[in-house]
């Protein structure tokens, strides 16, 4: 069965990296709405790493993040997650869209990567606890009772024990985003993806979300964070990357990245965000 599958994708398993943990993306290209949003990006995320991706809006950083769990399917390029190559069909020259070849694989990979969105994306007709427990119940087949316990544990972790039965509408933006983080955590993922998690929040609510994220970073989790919070990125990440025009222009440990940037564009970006 496995052999048959490998045969149908000639590139799979031939001279590819052995089951390496983490994420590797190679030559990722994506065209959206007539713009080349990603133009051959290379990205590696190693286990335990906290990678911040910075850049102006339109630089492609959110699109790159969404490509990692295939919420956006790259037109070209390869992605390995935990050493497993994702089976995707490249877009055709004639405008045929890129596609997912192995939906089961993609669901499994998505379940292993928690994602936190800019607009929280909680389900309004479910309580905070239900938002957190539906994933474990439906995807992992955990019984409702055990899932509720799990859900309460992670709600406590984001400081919302008392809001388990509240509906999203009754929660502030910061609380909603913390529920969304608990929802991602309850899947006990190997990687956490954050897509501008504080950009939709009122300034006074940003801190509570960043504190939760910093605590997670302190646990040695693997995290990829697309953000505009430079101070946070500098403090928390183990590596920072700067995107411009659909490519990663510069990446380095946060000390060098923020103190002695090489590219003129990054210098300009940092100066304008000071």
């Amino acid at each position: 069965m496995r052999a048959a599958k490998a045969l149908s994708y000639p590139a799979f398993g031939v001279g590819e990296p052995a089951a390496e943990p983490g994420i590797r993306a190679e030559r990722i290209e994506k065209r959206l709405g007539g713009n080349d949003v990603l133009r051959g990006v290379e990205l590696i995320v190693r286990p335990g790493e906290i990678l911040s991706i910075l850049g102006s809006s339109g630089s492609g950083k959110s699109t790159l993040l969404r490509c990692l769990n295939l919420l956006t399917i790259p037109d070209r390029g390869d992605i390995w997650v935990h050493g497993e190559k994702l089976a995707i069909r490249a877009a055709s020259q004639h405008g045929g869209p890129a596609g997912i070849l192995d939906h089961r694989q993609v669901r499994r990979v998505r379940a292993s990567m928690g994602m936190v969105f800019q607009n929280f994306n909680l389900w309004p007709h479910k309580t905070a606890l239900e938002n957190v427990t539906e994933g474990p119940v439906l995807v992992k087949g955990i019984r409702r009772g055990a899932a509720a316990e799990l859900g309460r544990h992670y709600l406590a972790k984001v400081g919302l024990s008392d809001k388990a039965d509240a509906y999203p509408r009754h929660l502030s933006g910061g609380q909603q985003q913390r529920v969304a983080i608990a929802r991602a955590l309850a899947m006990e993922p190997q990687v956490l993806l954050f897509d501008e998690p504080t950009s939709a929040l009122d300034p006074e609510l940003v801190g509570e979300v960043l504190r939760v994220m910093a605590a997670l970073a302190g646990e040695g989790r693997t995290m990829v964070i697309v953000t505009h919070e430079l101070a946070f990125a500098r403090e928390v990440s183990t590596r920072a990357a700067f995107m411009h025009g659909g490519l990663i222009e510069e990446e380095s440990p946060p000390q060098e990245f923020f103190s002695s940037p090489v590219s003129g564009r990054l210098r300009g970006f940092l100066a304008s965000h000071r």
């Binding site: 769990n69 919420l71 669901r107 499994r108 990979v109 998505r110 379940a111 292993s112 990567m113 928690g114 994602m115 969105f117 607009n119 994306n121 909680l122 389900w123 309004p124 539906e134 994933g135 439906l138 995807v139 969304a180 929802r183 991602a184 899947m187």
Partner: peptide, 22 residues
């Protein structure tokens, strides 16, 4: 909102589970 469906997909839900849940 499309984001609610994306949230379900990002957790690894099957399309019909997304239909029933969201």
């Amino acid at each position: 909102p499309a984001g609610q469906i994306e949230a379900a997909r990002s957790l690894g839900l099957h399309p019909w589970q997304t239909w029933l849940l969201v």
